[in-house]
């Protein structure tokens, strides 16, 4: 098999692999939450069934909804999927990884978010506006924090390309880096905000005044809702993969590695993914949701941590220069 074809197949396989497992990650989190609340909870495959059900249903549109409202879900899904394809998961150095770096990745997620926030305004209802305005407020704080995390990593690794970063971390001798720890905490907070998880937002509520993400998608139904839900699952997996890639890339296979290396890569990636999903579930049941205006302080904390990470990285470079 020629090299380009092989890499094309590998890339395609990785994209569909991520798409295929994303709902299960959400499913695991929900299951863990339910068990911890002493409920049995739905099967971890319930998100797949939900998606299938939604796709088959007819779509109900508000009288005021336009072409933008109808096309946005597909665009949101596509942006998220392409962003997810940029993150090395099983193996680094996949074909698509070269197309953009982490700055572009953050911007792609931003594009999906802006489209969703716009679509929320299209039906002309009060809730769409609530969700949209809160989402953009949260994003305006989360985006700088995530870019600062990227900056920290780039300072250390000397590149903004994710496969390169992962490679750098794998080859680096294991050392304690407080700046990475802080950046990790900051990115985890950002991930919780971006994925509308507790304590920033509650993915399980339709309680009017606390909704952010759910308020935006309130008018969506049928296949459009399915697309947005799928994008949500993908985004969660994307962030977990990003955290794995930036902080715990160990075990990731090089692209041209042997079958054994790939097996290790797949195994360790899945194990880390499941672990993260379980941790998220445990975290969500053990903490209460914040008031919307506390969120800014929470994310301000993430921003502070990310900035401190850079300062400390700067300091340790400076004194060891």
């Amino acid at each position: 098999m020629p090299a380009t074809l092989q890499s094309f197949v590998a890339q395609g396989a990785q994209m569909f692999f991520v798409l295929a497992i994303a709902p299960a990650v959400t499913g695991i989190t929900r299951k863990v939450k339910a068990r911890l609340m002493r409920r049995r909870g739905p099967s971890i495959f319930q998100p797949y069934r939900d998606l299938l059900k939604l796709v088959r249903k007819e779509s109900v549109l508000a009288p005021n909804a336009t072409w933008f409202f109808r096309s946005a879900p597909y665009m949101i899904f596509a942006f998220t999927w392409v962003a997810a394809a940029l993150v090395p998961t099983l193996a680094s150095g996949l074909m698509f990884n070269w197309a953009a770096d982490v700055v572009a990745l953050v911007a792609l997620i931003g594009a999906a978010r802006a489209l969703l926030a716009l679509a929320a305004m299209d039906a002309g209802t009060a809730f769409g506006g609530i969700g949209s305005s809160r989402e953009m407020m949260i994003a305006s704080l989360a985006e700088p924090a995530s870019l600062l995390v990227a900056l920290t990593i780039a300072f250390a690794a000397g590149t903004t390309r994710l496969p390169e970063v992962a490679q750098f971390l794998i080859t680096q001798p294991l050392e304690i880096r407080v700046s990475f720890a802080l950046a990790f905490v900051a990115l985890v907070i950002v991930a919780m905000a971006e994925n509308a998880r507790i304590p920033v937002d509650n993915p399980a509520t339709h309680l009017e005044l606390t909704m952010v993400h759910e308020a935006m998608v309130l008018e969506y139904s049928g296949r459009h809702l399915a697309m947005i839900e799928a994008a949500g699952h993908l985004k969660l997996t994307l962030y977990i993969s990003l955290i794995i890639c930036l902080f715990l890339p160990f075990g990731m296979a090089p692209f041209d590695g042997s079958a054994d290396a790939w097996a290790i890569g797949i195994g360790s990636y899945l194990a880390k993914l499941v672990l993260a999903a379980v941790a998220l579930g445990v975290w969500e049941v053990s903490i209460a949701k914040m008031r919307v205006f506390r969120v800014s302080e929470f994310l301000g904390g993430a921003f502070t941590f990310a900035f401190l990470a850079i300062l400390l990285e700067f300091l340790s470079r400076e004194v060891q220069r």
Binding site: I176, A181, L182, E297, T304, F305, L308
Partner: peptide
């Protein structure tokens, strides 16, 4: 020596983080 430095950096850095937490909390 780098390792020694790393641990010192980590501990002092954590103290700074605590200072920020004191300010935040």
């Amino acid at each position: 020596m780098t390792n020694a430095y790393d641990v010192a950096h980590f501990l002092a850095g954590m103290m700074l983080v605590c200072s920020f937490t004191l300010l935040y909390q």
